[in-house]
Write a protein that binds this DNA or RNA. Structure first.
Lengths: 343, 343
DNA sequence: GTGAAAGCGCTAACAC
DNA sequence: GTGTTAGCGCTTTCAC
């Protein structure tokens, strides 16, 4: 707070050598041993540390990568960030967090803000992906890697996961547990995940030969526990008059699944005995819940790793063709779908 | 990716005016209306956007604040970050995430890295606070605000919370629910929170006139569910031979509390009927858990807000005296300590 | 009100 | 191997 930072110039003067030699000595490229020693000593005495901004301006490299999401509070994003950070930090990159949520900032605006050149790249998780966003990404001055939809056909590097197939895994899993009437608890359909998961559910029940009267779908306002609770209440009350009740709920993410478990509990139903529940994302929350939640892992940390890997490739060569990585979904069976004879 | 960014110089040439006028026109300070219009048009045609690095170098201001924690995966830190981000973003600050966890980086090193001048300040949550760290903070070239211990006596601005008093609230709460034999499930004692919470527990049971045979303490290896489960198993098995079993567990955070509930379940004990459980931090996890967790809120988001507020003050005037904000703990009663007659 | 020029801190040609 | 110098993009005196 009090001390002011030393500049390279001051180190040079103290060492009694030129600016260039000082810079070289500190980087260890093409300087005599004596020079290196002399400069090092001067630098140490002054507590010198190279200025990141000066260097950035000269090198045209900020050593920063932006991570842009709708809401950083979402545990899935947190895990991705952790994965991204793990890969990027050893390469000397800092991670700058940006959100679309707190202000009225859209993903497109976030991408446009790259024009101010404060980062060397951006890893973006858009809730919705439209043409305007893709156009903006393609004309961005630095590489952008998208986590979400597969976008390499549009010339955008991306990390995707087949959440539709993941929902299929969940449907088959509860089927294999002997469940016959399945409720699907989805989030908003106009979001990328919501749309994909709906497709996955529809395809899975069709493939499994479900008749329409054995399937219910309910859409929550948001991918949250509260919204899931409200929607699951509707789901359970809808089937209340029927002969056969729902004996399984496949939820589009873990938070909705927790909402469903609470709603089941309210309705006097036991999980998993009366109704099996599956989530998606394999969050810590689901893992430690009671009953622990069967969930389809979409490899959050893995996707973070992959996105960061793509980014490293792109910062090396920004003109390389767009690449795409797919991370497979994997169902992890836990207590919420444990075997037992449903009434 | 393909397009290259326009510079102020190019805008100036296109507008046919000087560099200085261009800069002024774009900032709206002391330029004629005609000039402003002319420059604006040229800038728009070129899609100009001011370079953040060039400006930073000139202004000696990066518009970035670092948020440094041990492990960004911790939900409490995530909520703080959200709070920090909410306050800082409207002021044009970006948040850079740093962790001590992923490499062998210590908090002291993180503070020392401020010498490279890539941020205008740092909000730090150290696990341990020793003299070396305080010294490093005081000689840092930019403001540092600490979330954790109250440090203004040492000339360091800080946001603290009285977690010791919070544990006291938890103890009195379970007492008021008629519980007589209390187990304290703490995390590592050589951490700032661990030490404070132990002090709080010891003081509370002493004040409440507990005799030593009515109190058990167990220390987990870490502030996690897994460590909490292991430690809680020890806690329950320790008292197994006694006449009176534990009828309450006060845990040092929500994750440990969840571990305790799992251990209770394993031991065939019902929560809250046989044993009441309290956590601390009031996390989403605890709120949605079944049974929902009684927890002492330490105002995570609020502390984030406060820290960001202090930071804004310090960036305005770095030499103002160190300030300190205390956020009071608040117990939020939920199902895990609901009334009922313990056996 | 506008322009010319200095300079923030750094690295990399380019000469010697 | 070392020194001199230009210049990354920007803002801001300083003259006019």
């Amino acid at each position: 707070m009090t001390s002011t930072r030393a500049t390279l110039m001051q180190v040079a003067e103290r060492a009694g050598v030129s600016l260039a030699s000082t810079s070289r000595a500190l980087h260890g490229t093409g300087a005599s041993k004596a020079m290196v020693e002399r400069v090092r000593a001067a630098a140490a005495e002054l507590g010198y540390s190279a200025d990141a901004i000066g260097r950035s301006l000269r090198m045209k490299k900020t050593s920063q990568i932006a991570f842009a999401v709708a809401d950083i509070g979402n545990p899935v994003y947190v895990e991705m960030m952790r994965g991204i950070h793990e890969v990027l930090a050893p390469h000397g990159y800092r991670v700058v967090v940006m959100t679309t949520g707190d202000t009225a900032t859209s993903a497109t605006e976030l991408v446009r803000s790259l024009n101010s050149g404060f980062v060397d790249g951006m890893i973006l998780i858009p809730l919705r992906t439209d043409d305007r966003l893709i156009t903006e990404i393609r004309r961005a001055p630095v590489p952008v890697v998208v986590i979400g939809r597969a976008l390499s056909e549009h010339g955008v590097s991306s990390v995707s996961t087949d959440s539709a197939a993941g929902i299929g895994q969940a449907v088959r899993h509860v089927r294999s547990r002997g469940r016959r009437r399945i409720g699907f608890l989805n989030g908003p359909l106009d979001t990328t995940p919501g749309a994909a998961r709906q497709r996955g559910f529809d395809a899975a029940v069709r493939a499994d030969g479900f008749t329409a009267d054995r399937v219910e779908t309910e859409v929550a306002d948001d991918f949250t526990v509260a919204a899931g609770l409200a929607a699951a209440r509707r789901l359970f009350s809808r089937g209340a008059g029927r002969a056969e009740r729902l004996d399984a709920v496949v939820a589009a993410n873990d938070l909705l699944a927790i909402g469903a478990i609470r709603a089941a509990r309210e309705a006097g139903l036991s999980v998993p005995d009366d109704v099996a529940v599956t989530g998606m994302d394999d969050t810590e929350l689901g893992r430690v819940f009671l009953p622990s939640l069967t969930s389809v892992s979409l490899g959050s940390a893995e996707r973070g790793h992959a996105a960061a890997g793509l980014m490293l490739g792109l910062t090396d060569d920004p003109d390389q063709p767009a690449r795409q990585v797919a991370v497979g979904p994997e169902l992890i069976a836990r207590e919420s779908t444990a075997d037992g004879s449903p009434r």
